[in-house]
Structure formats: C-alpha cells, structure tokens
Design a protein around this nucleic acid. Structure first.
Lengths: 217, 217
DNA sequence: AGAGTACAACTTGTATACAAGTTAGGGATA
DNA sequence: TATCCCTAACTTGTATACAAGTTGTACTCT
C-alpha cells in the first residue's frame, strides 16, 4: 500500500467513459429513442463495452435510464407525478437557498438584470432555445450566490431531466405571452431581493416554478 | 432490435456489484481507512474487478469517495463546510416537504408519537445506536407522508454521508441531556402538525437540524 | 555527495472472452 | 389447428488480459 500522499490533478486527457456519458445523455434528451442496449451503443459510439457500461451506470444513478438485467436499457419516461416531484425538488432547494443568502451584492443584482434583459431580447427574436439557456442560467446564478454545491448539483440534475424532450414537450407549444409572464416573475424576484430576508422573492419563486407543472398538457 | 416490450421484474438473484456496494460503503462508514485501491478491494471481497468497479463508480456518484485516475481511491473526508451543505440540504427538503403535506392523519401522528416514546426509552438505556435508528426513521417517515421519492432519496444520501464515522465523531460525545433536547424538538414538531399549514413545525424542524452543525467539535 | 535517469511496481482505463438469463420463433407432436 | 418444447439470438453480469499513466527507489554518472 502506497497511498496517503497528496493528490495532484494532472490535466487528464478526455476519457472514453466521459465521452460516452455525454453522447448517451444527448440521445436520451433528444427523446427520439425509448430503449437501447449496450451492443447497439457500442456500434454507435465505436468503443468497447467498458466505457459504455460506466456511462450507463452513471446515467442510471442520475435517473436518466434504467437497466433491466438481461432485458435491455430503457430511457426514463417520466409520469406527471415524477415530473412534479422534480419541480418540487427545485422549489425546496431554490426557495430555501435564496432565503439563506444574507445579502445580494450590487454585482449580483446587475448580473441578474442583464440576464433578464437578454431574456426579453431572446423572446423578441422568438429564440426559445436561447431563452431556455438564459432561464437556466438565471436560476443557477441565484444558487451560485448561496454557494451550496449540493443545491447546485441537485438543481442541475432536476433541470436536465425535466428538459428531456419527452418530458418537455410543453416547450414546443409555449407562446411568447406565457414566456413574457415568466420573465416578469424573474424581474419581480430580483426587485424584491434583500427585502424581508428574501421571503417575498422566495414566494414568487415558488409560484414561478410551479407554473412549470401547469404548462404540461 | 427486439425491445419495446413490457418489462417483467424477475426475482433477481443478488448481484456481486450490489454486495460490493454494500460492503465498501460499510468500510467507508466505519471510518477506519482513508484510501484504498481496486486491487486491495478485489483481494478483500474475493471477486473480480468488474463488480468492484461498478460499486466504486456508484459510490463516487453518491459522494462517498473519489477516484483519481492512476493514483487511487480516496474516501470522502468532509470539511466543515461540506457537512453544513448537507445539513442545509436536509433543511431545504424536510421543511418544504412538511409544509407541502395538507394534513397528517391520526395514523401518522400515532406512528410518530410511538417513535418518540421509543426514542426516550433508547436514551434511558443509553443505547445511542438505537436512538439514531429511530431518529433516522422519524425524519424519514415525515418525508414518506409527503411521498416525494426525490426528497427521500436525497435525504437518505445526505444522512448516510453525515453518518460516516469520520464526519459523525460528535455522536461519540453527545450526552443524554443533548439528545433529550433533540427528542423534545421531535415532540414539538409533532404537537404543531396540522396547525398554520405546518409552518411552525417547519420552523422547529429547521432549528432542530441546524443543531447538527453546532454539535461538531 | 548530489543530480539525473531508468526501471519496477503500482494505479486506473479499456478491450474482450465467457457465463448466465431472457425471449422470439420454428417445428414436432397431439 | 393448437400446444409444447427446443434452440438460436439476443440481453446484461462477470472475469481477465492488456494499455497507459504515476511514483518510489535504486543505480549511474559527474
């Protein structure tokens, strides 16, 4: 046994299992397939089973798919209940996080207002993909001010799972009026920061995230 | 491609990777070792690298260890900040969960009161292991009434990671007086259920979990 | 003695062979 | 025709061989 030394982080060259993880997740999020198998992924990604299996097991841990022994790999197809659970997870984390921040600095507020301005611009251009990126960044930034890495990790997971096409069909039929109301929520949240221990912002945030549930068909 | 059928859940015989997962987690939670390697685990558990690696990667995903390529496997040794992050995760989830439950039934209340009675009995016997089990069950039951499986999963993960010996040294020096105050918190939480949308219970719960942070040296 | 280097013994990453379970389909049997 | 059974082709689980990176040590050279 040699261990116990300090760990040095070398610049690691990209590993196949990480490439596989990313690619398979993209397949899942594209929503075109419902199931697959190790062998078909081996053919598709041109690597051996080992990195494929590493990626699959990681994605299974993160809730993106389920491996049935000797039967195949099924991509996660959330029920309405499961989607709501993820939205509630977001509410729990994001509302507590914002209330826990003692003060948002001027720099924080400026960043958020600029993000909101860009959100309006994206909607004007009817570029809903860019809007979604900005929306994701808005909520993520609020969490980053708190600094709790657990919050951030859970948020990203919930958000990504909710963004798989099969669970986010609603995005396709959102209209600019609906989105403009979401942006108004964002503005209201920022306007009420640093007041009343951020309780008001947290309340708006809760209603805001809850709108995600309703927007489903 | 054959897939697309209904999945049948056969009674699966226990898999080596699940055994490895459990055993390695026990080693981590015992807190006796700080690092290891695949080969030493292979010798210890008498199985090949494959199930060992599956278990290790799963545990890494859950935050129990970190694999450094070509350098070894280091068990998670949390800083004070990281422990606090997990406690805050618990607060976020548990307080929102309890507020979300519209009504706790008589059966729920009865279960919780019986659990609390057993907590007192355990402390009288100075059996802090049993108390810990009951405490874990108390908080878990509150989440189960809500029914959100995401809450439950995150709670269990946070709880287990906080219970690794190296992060829970405090347990060894907790005194029965301290624990009795924790049990009083539990009783107060239950006494205030179904009042004021469970806001009061949630507030007590927040202070209660926060005491975990303070109890560290 | 000291600096540098080569090497051996470790580490995890990757590829692949084999084991065991599941399933669809064809064919024998009634 | 209908039923049963066998088998071939799939599935994931497991074991193992090989590749590539890291590190302590011992040796060589100055």
């Amino acid at each position: 046994m040699r261990g116990g030394k300090d760990i040095i982080h070398y610049q690691t060259k990209p590993q196949l299992k990480d490439i596989a993880y990313q690619k398979i997740k993209e397949i899942i999020m594209s929503g075109e397939e419902e199931f697959t198998s190790e062998s078909s992924l081996v053919n598709l990604l041109s690597m051996s089973r080992t990195p494929i299996r590493d990626a699959i097991h990681r994605l299974e841990n993160e809730g993106f798919l389920k491996v049935y022994s000797n039967q195949g790999i099924y991509f996660w197809n959330p029920t309405a209940e499961e989607r709501n659970e993820l939205f509630d997870m977001r509410i729990a984390i994001e509302t507590y996080s914002i209330k826990q921040v003692p003060v948002f600095t001027d720099e924080n507020i400026t960043y958020l207002r600029e993000n909101i301005r860009d959100q309006y611009l994206a909607v004007e251009k009817e570029d809903y993909l860019v809007f979604n990126e900005l929306d994701m960044d808005f909520h993520q930034y609020l969490l980053e001010v708190n600094g709790n890495s657990q919050f951030l990790k859970s948020y990203k997971n919930a958000r990504e799972r909710l963004m798989t096409i099969r669970s986010a069909k609603y995005l396709l039929k959102t209209q600019s009026e609906v989105i403009k109301r979401l942006i108004k929520d964002h503005a209201e949240i920022v306007d009420n920061l640093n007041k009343d221990s951020n309780v008001i912002s947290a309340e708006i945030l809760e209603k805001h995230i809850n709108k995600g549930k309703i927007n489903f068909s």
